[in-house]
């Protein structure tokens, strides 16, 4: 059931470095990066510029997973949230190093680089971003 190695190689720039892109026609930021801006379409072709994202954002919604997939079984219960990054894009990620009950809509978060999952069969470890409650957040 595991996906091939090549896919993870391709995704490393985004998963490891938060590399998105920006449309130089309308300044909208995309993550993951897009070939073209869906709003400017033809005008944006060849004018999409790479942009590293800050990894700072805010929780838009969340859940606490109690029944996880096989490769995440050891982590339950764990919070997963939709986060709106300060630059605009929304993404899905885990919230770590906090009591699952503390996660709230509107909470400020920042990204951290962690092990995401370990393939039980091959032992391969996959890394990527997760989120922490921001240090300077009172919420």
């Amino acid at each position: 059931m595991k996906e091939g190695v090549a896919r993870f190689w391709r995704e490393i720039p985004q998963r490891y470095n938060f590399l998105g892109n920006v449309c130089s026609s309308c300044d909208r930021v995309f993550f993951p990066p897009r070939e073209a801006c869906p709003f400017c379409r033809r005008k944006s072709m060849g004018k999409m510029k790479e942009q590293y994202l800050s990894g700072h954002g805010e929780v838009i919604s969340y859940t606490v997973i109690h029944v996880g997939p096989e490769d995440f079984e050891e982590q339950v219960p764990y919070p997963v949230a939709i986060i709106q990054l300060d630059e605009g894009p929304r993404i899905t990620g885990q919230i770590v190093d906090c009591d699952p009950d503390d996660v709230k809509i509107g909470m400020k978060v920042e990204s951290t680089f962690r092990k995401i999952q370990q393939d039980g069969c091959s032992g391969a470890i996959y890394y990527g971003y997760k989120f922490l409650k921001s240090h300077n957040s009172n919420k």
């Binding site: 993951p32 997973i65 996880g68 982590q75 899905t92 990527g128």
Partner: peptide
Amino acid sequence: WEAFFGAT
């Protein structure tokens, strides 16, 4: 972009 991060 969802399941990879543990979202069921």
